[in-house]
Design a protein around this nucleic acid. Sequence first.
DNA 1: GCAGCGTTAATAT
DNA 2: TTAACGCTGC
Length: 570
Amino acid sequence: MGINNLLKFMKPYVESVHIKKYAGKRVGIDAYSWLHKGAYSCSMEVCLDMEGDKKNRFLQYFMHRISMLRHCKITPVVVFDGGSTTCKAATEDGRHRKRKANRDLAMEKLKEGDTDAASELFQRAVSITPQMAHQLIQILRSENVEFVVAPYEADAQLAYLASLETEKGGIVAIISEDSDLLAYNCPAVVFKMDRYGKGEEIILKNALNVAGRKPSFMNFDRELFTGMCILAGCDFLPSVPGIGIVKAYNLVAKYRNLDRVLSVLKLEKGKVVPEDYPNAFRQALAVFHHARVYDAASKKLKPLNPLTPELLQGENGDLDFLGPDLSPSIAVAIAEGNLDPCTMEAFNHFPQSGYKHSLSFTDSASQLSTQEEATGSMQEGCFTVVSCHKTVKKRIRGDMPLDGMKSSSEGKQMTVISEEVLNESETSALKKLGFRSRNEVFAQKEPAPLRSTLNIPSNNPFKKQKRDNEVQLNEAMSTVEQASEVTEVEKPEIFSATQKSEESIDSKLIKPKGKRITEKLSKQSNPKHVISSKVGVRSILNLKSSKSLDSYQKGYSYSLKIISILGNSL
DNA sequence: GCAGCGTTAATAT
DNA sequence: TTAACGCTGC
């Protein structure tokens, strides 16, 4: 990830800082880096999509850091990655394969009973899923933390925010682990920030055009700097064999013109330079400067910097490598966290989170820590559901064997495995180790489905898939406009299933819910599956058309605060 | 001196 | 997953 060896090379420009230097300011956060770090503490649970408190540690990790920033009077702006662009497909694919291999190995170790080796391998296998990001988004909403989902790269979105003035939603610095941000010309990036707020900062203008320091970036403009980064090797384009950061720097410093550098490279390295390297290089450069980002003011996608005439004329006018343009309604739905940017499926509005988000932050005795509150309603196994769908209400009230659920509880720490992500032998291996499957725990206890499914083609290249999905989404929308059932389900509603649930409204607990099984049930047993899909889409796009965002969000976050599900039965 | 490879440690609690 | 380190070969 990032630019090969860039941080090491920039060491002379790194300064130790405490994040409180940005008190009173808005600071952007690359969500992926914290999600990933947080996931280490629960890698097995995440990989196997288990249920239970431990799986949600990554949320606690994230929110702890948010609390720390707020404690420092910083306004955090969390930026999530969206879909990946075609340029990056190869890198992503390689990572995916590695993770899968590690996961398979981990399963084998687990079967052998070697849990230590297994957990180490699971740590290498963790990937951050859109569902995890969405879980976090739900909490951020309820805690009124500002966030945006980038249409493509979070880095580009962060760079865009950093280019805006504060009054227009801009940020003054970025917290991340990704050196790409420097290639995107972000002015101030804090790397390796620990939980107390200490980190290492690079301020770009302290390096560019400053005399007397080595390596000297005297007479480097931002384009040359980005060019150097690409030459050294980045996610979009591997470096020419034999070229690392030092040689890249020397070439750029010597010729101060990227076209010249490319021709010298061809002369010096000859056949080692791939045929299409110069073209790929220019595309990568264009991505770093003109990637498509979401503009909250116009609620549309726009290029990070205005497109140049050369770009508009070149590439036969096909600028999809910057990330294909999206219609405004889709762009908004993605940015606001209602549409999965990878699959273009509507996110399930059903609660997924087991995170207990009553975090407070103290630094007395210079020790910063979280406090989790357990409430009575949880211990008593209270059951409250938030839903956008009225049939859910009926099912919960009519069919849910609540008493059975309460009596089946076997202590808080029980971990439940999901058969949908495991094959048969894996499932039986885990059962031998004492895990229970979700199907066993949730059989006949699940409410009706809410998830929308839009028949996503699975093997298509990303670009085509996005377009197809967008068409389907728009079609689904227009069909739904006329469906009479829709009017019934527009308003988010809160339903309670026990007399205790009224009390739980004050509770700040969110307990996990079996999602995958919900989907499975929906396909098997709900003849109205297609309708409910459309409802999902409608309810999302409805945000834009008929309600002010503000009032919806208030309602939504309120709803989320009272989600408290299943109590001890997990 | 540098690139590039392999190994190892750290990430979180 | 990444950074850091040491080794090797150009």
